[in-house]
Amino acid sequence: MMPAEKLTMAAALNRAMRDALRADPAVVVFGEDVGPLGGVFRVTDGLTAEFGDQRCFDTPLAESGILGMAIGMAMNGMRPVVEMQFDAFAYPAFEQLVSHAAKMRNRTRGRLEVPLVIRVPYAGGIGGVEHHCDSSEAYYAHTPGLHVVAPSDPADAYGLLRKAIESADPVVFLEPKKLYFSKAEADLTAPVPPIGKAVIRRPGTDATLIAYGPAVPIALEAAEAAAQEGRSLQVVDLRSIVPFDDETVCAAVRSTGRAVVVAEAAGFASVSSEVVARVTERCFHSLHAPIRRVTGFDIPYPPPKLEHVHLPSVDRILDTVDELQWEYA
């Protein structure tokens, strides 16, 4: 493999599953349309052809069934990677996730592990019709026992998915749909930080933008635009919502004294509100202004024609940064 190549996030995820299937006979991939079709986003393209119908296979169309069977297989020595097709179509699997995948270790005092990955193509920005663009991370992050991660570029998508498949705990793997087909240079052989670590995607000294998944490229774009105007914005990519990296995030915010959290999901009772609460509790005396949020509105995901109004934009981020009480300090 060439050290650095240009590839899409979909291709990086595909490579991660391919390499995991090669590395460990316990890994199996299944879900709806993941077989010969290769998934509706082609993320599992070619896996059935290479590994056979017993390693990558289509199931009946029933998400609770898919996850419930995956839990049983994980109880019996396998490492299932299941696809939920679309964010809002994962809800029928909610009970299996919350009451069983998340709790099996605890209710057996660690004697039964369920190492499985629930891949969820998620969030908006693709002009999708209803029930195809939900940002559902808060439901998962609120459930003890689950890890919740969201990559923002191809290299991290590859590295995080490999780590998720190797994890001894269930991992909800949120794949930003709008980033599936954006290409970037990626060295898939380079190690990535573990699940639970945030990274600084762009250094900056004036304020910190905290984002994850689909909001990271927008935050980076906003930081670039701010630089043109002479303001230096730091960008933190959470990568892992659970476990949450208080250390990296708080160190970043302390270094600038100002922060804006950027997320696509509705802001009320959300991951973004948790980030604000955590950082405020820990960094209050380093803050020059209240931490602000740029999030989706508290509405059902809008139709394609109006999603641009809903999604965090560069302008909305920069307007919010402008309001961070620059007159003080």
């Binding site: 419930g68 069977m69 995956a70 839990i71 049983g72 109880m75 019996n76 020595g77 299996q96």
Partner: peptide
């Protein structure tokens, strides 16, 4: 019952 199916399938 689904876990049972998974254990048996594995």
């Amino acid at each position: 019952l689904l876990h049972a199916v998974g254990v048996a399938h594995a």
